[in-house]
Computed example of a mutant assay.
Amino acid sequence: MTLEISPAARDALEGWIAHGRALRGAAETTLTAYRADVIDFIAFLTAHHAEPQGLAPLARVTTPDMRAFMAHLRADGVSHRSMARKLSAVKSFYRWLSEREGFEPTAVLSARAPKFQKKLPRPLSEDAARAMIDTVETQSGEGWIGARDAAVVTLLYGCGLRISEALGLRGRDLPLGESLRITGKGRKERIVPVIPIARRAVETYLKLCPFEIAADDQIFRGKRGGALNPRLIQKVTETARMQLGLPATATPHAMRHSFATHLLSAGGDLRAIQELLGHASLSTTQAYTSVDTVHLMKVYLDTHPKAG
């Protein structure tokens, strides 16, 4: 089916995407997914009303239209999580479009997303996290590559960095001090303490690295000297976790989850952990309280004399 959409509506869609790119600093993959979600919505309206969708029809969307859209997604077998994401994209588009065009978007913004069970982060134990770092270092026959991989994974666990943030470090960030200024999602800056073991891991890698690193160069390099591909870190952690007998959830991102969970277990303040992780909302960080509760209940059931 060919999507019939007016040039004005198409321009509005692209304007919204450009707005997200310029002002919110959203990742390209996120913008691509959001664009596809809004196009799916417009395609549904085109079929539902049997007419091309321009700005005027888009402004006339009703509550029954939104109910029909959600029913259409359910009939297509779309998961609750994906339905919620699609609705979020449509609402974001309508907030922007209604301000630009001056219409009332209540019918769209009041639509309720289906409830779904959020997946809890799956952290590694402290021993498993340490073993992962040690094992990652042994995967390559070249010493500098092993030191590189260990340094990256140490930054994920020791500083709670996202893999993109660790691989985004540049020569100007050297030598690593007691803290790092990190620019994360949405171009939000935060200060992250760098523990001594993480500094030493990076220093060891730099001593062995065969490439010069200028101020604008990324610190972590591939075998031929280009920027390190994150897939290589994913592959080396996958090999390490199979050697260690860890579950498939033992990924590079799990090291960041482990950082947060272990801090919380040691009595860390939730708000401080939010700042360290760079979460925009405290509700995102609060998932770790559930993880910690699960761990505490397991310890209780395993050790309390009356629990059995």
Rank of each mutant, 00 (worst) to 15 (best):
H80R: 11
F116E: 07
D40P: 06
E165C: 01
K91L: 02
R112E: 15
G160S: 08
A27I: 08
A266S: 10
I273R: 01
L174E: 12
T289C: 00
T135P: 00
L73I: 12
A36M: 02
I197P: 00
E14G: 09
I191V: 15
P193C: 02
E28F: 01
Q117D: 14
L263C: 04
T204W: 02
R271T: 14
S283E: 14
G225I: 02
E101C: 06
V299F: 03
V108S: 03
I213A: 10
L264I: 13
G25W: 06
K91F: 09
I219A: 01
T239N: 05
R190T: 10
H19I: 04
P123G: 11
A36H: 11
L120T: 03
A22T: 13
E51L: 07
S6H: 05
A147T: 08
L120R: 09
W144K: 01
G160F: 05
S179W: 02
G177L: 00
I233S: 07
A250Y: 09
R170L: 04
Q274R: 09
T29F: 03
R231H: 04
T285E: 09
L23E: 15
E14N: 14
Y94T: 01
K306T: 07
L232Y: 14
M83Q: 15
R24I: 00
T285C: 00
S179Y: 06
H253D: 05
R224D: 09
T183R: 05
R85C: 00
E137C: 00
T261A: 15
A128D: 15
R190A: 06
R112F: 01
T293F: 12
E99C: 08
S179Q: 12
A147Q: 08
D269C: 08
A113F: 14
S92D: 13
P121N: 09
D292G: 00
I145A: 04
I219F: 02
R256H: 12
R60Y: 06
R85N: 06
W16Y: 13
E126C: 00
L246V: 04
P193I: 08
A50C: 08
K115C: 04
Q274T: 05
V38N: 10
R224E: 11
R67D: 15
S179T: 13
